[in-house]
Simulated assay, not measured.
Amino acid sequence: MSISNLQKCTICLSNVDRTTHGYLRHLRQVHGNDHLFNTSCPLCDSNFIYTNLKSFINHFRKHDFNSSGQDHSSLSLAPPFNDFNLDNHDDTDDSQQIQQASVWQSEHHGALDEIRKFYVKMLLKVREGHVLPGNIMKTMALSITCLLENFSYYLLSKLNINVDNVISYNFNNDIEKNIFEISRNEDSFIAACQSYFKFVKPKEILLPTGSKAYYIPLHQLLKNLFETQGFYDCVKQEKELISQFHGQDIIYHYQNAEFGRQHPVLQHKTNCFSLQLYSDDLGVVNPLMGKNAIHKLTTFYFSIDDLPARHNSSLSAVHLLLLYYKKDFDDEKNRKILFAQLSKDLNSLEEDGLILPGDKNPTYFTISTLCADNLSGKL
């Protein structure tokens, strides 16, 4: 059977557009969210049943490739070389055509990269802190690709351009491939966040009791913070302002007080920034489970103590460091394991420091304050 003879959907038996794009568009829009998706290919003699929409689409397109005689097998965005400078074949040699194709391809791959970044940012906003189920992400990816495909067809038809041209086909295919790759599972989404937004993946800590805790590497968090545009300059300016009030009657910052000036690390290292640590307990409930039991967790946060007050009062200046079950803290062995990596990183920052962007000499960090339940203790 040829594609042109295909008139009905093999799943719902509805009349469909007698083109490859029309048939696939119907599958995405009508059956894309079917949990029990299953169909055989109407264009071959195989009795194999496809239970995944993406697998079926990839198989179905192979028939289109073979019947059209065009080389669509590559998902490259570069069109055939003959598409460039059609009016002056004699004046353009092969090397110039190859160079033009390369430029065209690199520019549009850059556009795809921007689309990937925008899609990841949109998912981050919708997820509201990683609470969006994976099947919903796949539904969003399917809906977005359908929307973009319909938009491109409408735009090309208004411009009197063939909607089945190679460039449009490959570009839509690349967008679909990239979006579904990001939404495939949690690992692929986290990898995209690491690539585009410098997301620091937490390290899993296994405890002897069988529980798990999570620690976010402090070194990497600080590097990302100080690579933010203007952040380093803002901290240095505040640090200089604090030092100007040393020995004066006005205590601009608690470091200007006698106790602050006696800090063992800040007293001997001028190129040193201070960190504030916070500890707090919280309870979480999974509303999707049958039981409404509260899981009690303990968290550790940190902030840069040398930030101006207008920035330090914002929640965006507070960063998560450690997360574990509150009950695991009662065991002495667990406590040693929980704080082993954090203690090691803090000692390294005090003794070895960190090379910040634009610097040749290390900058040191030390704890100035530890807060728990709004009660502050100086270290």
Score class of each variant (00 low, 15 high):
128 E>S: 12
134 G>Q: 14
135 N>Q: 09
135 N>H: 11
135 N>T: 08
136 I>G: 02
137 M>R: 04
139 T>M: 13
141 A>C: 09
142 L>N: 07
145 T>R: 00
145 T>E: 02
146 C>L: 11
147 L>W: 06
149 E>V: 11
149 E>G: 10
150 N>D: 15
151 F>E: 09
154 Y>L: 10
154 Y>K: 08
155 L>A: 14
157 S>H: 11
157 S>I: 06
158 K>Y: 01
161 I>K: 14
161 I>M: 15
162 N>P: 09
167 I>M: 07
168 S>A: 15
171 F>T: 15
172 N>L: 15
174 D>Q: 12
177 K>D: 15
181 E>F: 05
181 E>G: 08
183 S>K: 00
186 E>H: 06
186 E>I: 02
191 A>K: 09
193 C>L: 06
198 K>V: 02
199 F>T: 01
199 F>M: 03
200 V>T: 13
201 K>L: 15
202 P>I: 03
202 P>D: 03
206 L>V: 13
206 L>N: 14
208 P>K: 10
209 T>L: 07
215 Y>F: 05
216 I>Y: 01
217 P>S: 09
220 Q>P: 00
222 L>C: 02
226 F>A: 03
226 F>G: 02
227 E>I: 04
227 E>W: 02
229 Q>H: 06
229 Q>D: 12
230 G>V: 03
236 K>Y: 04
239 K>A: 13
239 K>G: 10
239 K>C: 08
240 E>F: 10
240 E>H: 07
244 Q>I: 03
247 G>Y: 07
249 D>L: 07
250 I>V: 08
250 I>F: 08
255 Q>W: 14
